[in-house]
């Protein structure tokens, strides 16, 4: 998977590149509008991550260029602006998704996964993780060949974890992912526990025990190998 990251802020760019490369992506970067423009005209990418506020131009123009060229690349808009209107404009112009800064890296991974999955209809479509097999198009999950019945939220949660294998996901990140927005009402994150408990119980019943580990006081992690 080849990505182009357009971000002018160096510190953020480096962190994002690190995180994305860990996720197994091939990442190219552009720090300015000019660089980004040149790259999207010359090369093909699976997905372009665009920051809207660039020192020498408007990130939305990159989106426009991509769409005008009929590019197959997915577009994920990153915005430091208080989204509201840019959000709408970006999606109107053909961006596939947006994230408002600051965002969780885990959320970026999940969005990117979902976006790439939606965009690519050729080739294999399933996710394999240890004993798990997931068919995202069908929303079906199997543990060692046995079907696993999950609620929509539990399934959503599982996909989110699968997009971030081995990563520590904070409670806040999980809560935001579940409730779709910045949830200041959830001063306590009770509601994650319920869903986590149920998901774990179901996995455990099918013999996928200890997949999701609790990191006390911080969050959760999908263990890539058996800890025992």
């Amino acid at each position: 998977m080849k990505l182009l990251l357009v971000e002018d802020e160096e510190a953020l760019r480096l962190t994002l590149v690190d995180s994305l490369r860990q996720g197994g992506y091939v990442v190219e970067v552009a720090a300015t509008f000019a660089q980004a423009y040149e790259k999207v005209r010359l090369y093909q990418y699976d997905c372009v991550l665009v920051d809207l506020t660039l020192p020498d131009g408007d990130g939305l123009d990159i989106v426009r260029t991509l769409k005008a060229d009929g590019s197959a690349a997915g577009v994920l808009v990153l915005t430091a602006r208080d989204g509201l209107d840019d959000r709408v404009r970006g999606l109107d112009l053909g961006a596939d998704d947006y994230l408002t800064k600051p965002f969780h890296l885990s959320e970026l991974n999940a969005r990117l996964r979902a976006l790439l999955r939606r965009r690519q209809f050729q080739g294999q479509h399933h996710i394999v993780f240890r004993d798990l097999l997931v068919w995202p198009e069908l929303a079906e999950v199997y543990v060692r060949g046995e079907p696993l019945t999950l609620t929509r939220k539990e399934y959503d949660l599982l996909l989110y974890f699968l997009a971030n294998p081995g990563r520590l996901l904070t409670k806040e990140a999980v809560a935001e992912h579940l409730c779709g927005d910045q949830i200041d009402a959830a001063d306590s994150f009770d509601f994650i526990y319920t869903h986590m408990k149920n998901l774990r119980k179901k996995l455990q019943e099918k013999g996928a025990d200890g997949y999701i580990r609790t990191i006390y006081g911080v969050g959760y992690k999908l263990a890539t190998e058996d800890a025992r």
């Binding site: 962190t15 965002f103 890296l105």
Partner: peptide
């Protein structure tokens, strides 16, 4: 803030 958050998460 975005940098702080991303770095801390890393």
């Amino acid at each position: 803030l975005a940098i702080i958050q991303a770095k801390l998460e890393q």
